[in-house]
Amino acid sequence: MEAIFSRPKAMSSTITHYCPGCTHGIIHRLIGELLDEYNLKEKTVGVAPVGCAVLAYNYLDVDFIEAAHGRAPAVATGVKRGRPDLFVFTYQGDGDLASIGMGEIIHAANRGEKISVVFVNNAIYGMTGGQMAPTTLPQQVTSTCPQGRDVQTAGFPIRMAELLSSLQTDSFIARVSSHSPRNVIEAKKVLKRAFGYQVSGRCFTLVEFLSTCPTNWGLPPKKATEWLEQNMIPYYPLGIFKTPEEGKVK
């Protein structure tokens, strides 16, 4: 019988620890499929974050380094500068990348490190049990903003894709979503383009994925998907923000 659907070679058979309805697993799968499609399994080094995806190194069957919280872009810089022949990507949450690791991501992008960043924005700190993230929406309730995010004291959520696309250095920056099959298909195309730029040694690449956290949003999976669509997408518009060919496009 012909197999029409199977696990990508770049993924291990380990069962993930992600909650039901969490889209971290879908994003892992897209990475696995693309590593297969580009035939990169044997020349890839992934850098895992501190966050719910800390154990990504167990789920993707490629060489991996587990970084300190927020430092993945610096770790990836070290790998890529040491071994420019390798395909190097980081996988980071919004607390990891946009809060504690803000300095590392901006400077890696600004130096034009030839790495790929998979940025998973679920508007919350998942791993530590649902605290406010720099991406938490105005009025969104979390365990550390029980009255809802007050923009007077916490500021507005940071749009990382827009912020990074304002840098002059060449890069590919996009935002996609993982909440529906249509969006996942589109996300894969965008991530494929991003990985392609690294394969050809072109530029820094970052794809921001809007992602669900049903557990800490306090919503059942289907409701979480709807909440993402109704609340996150209006604040975090999807699209391509910057390409090495056209510069800033959005």
């Binding site: 970084a67 430092r71 040491g82 390798l86």
Partner: peptide, 26 residues
């Protein structure tokens, strides 16, 4: 060789972490 001026000592030390992890003297 490769010289990189990091944005901070936090970054520099994590860069050597990555470079050493890839098996390179750093």
């Amino acid at each position: 060789g490769v010289y990189v001026q990091a944005e901070s000592e936090v970054a520099a030390s994590n860069m050597i972490y990555g470079c050493a992890a890839a098996g390179v003297r750093v």
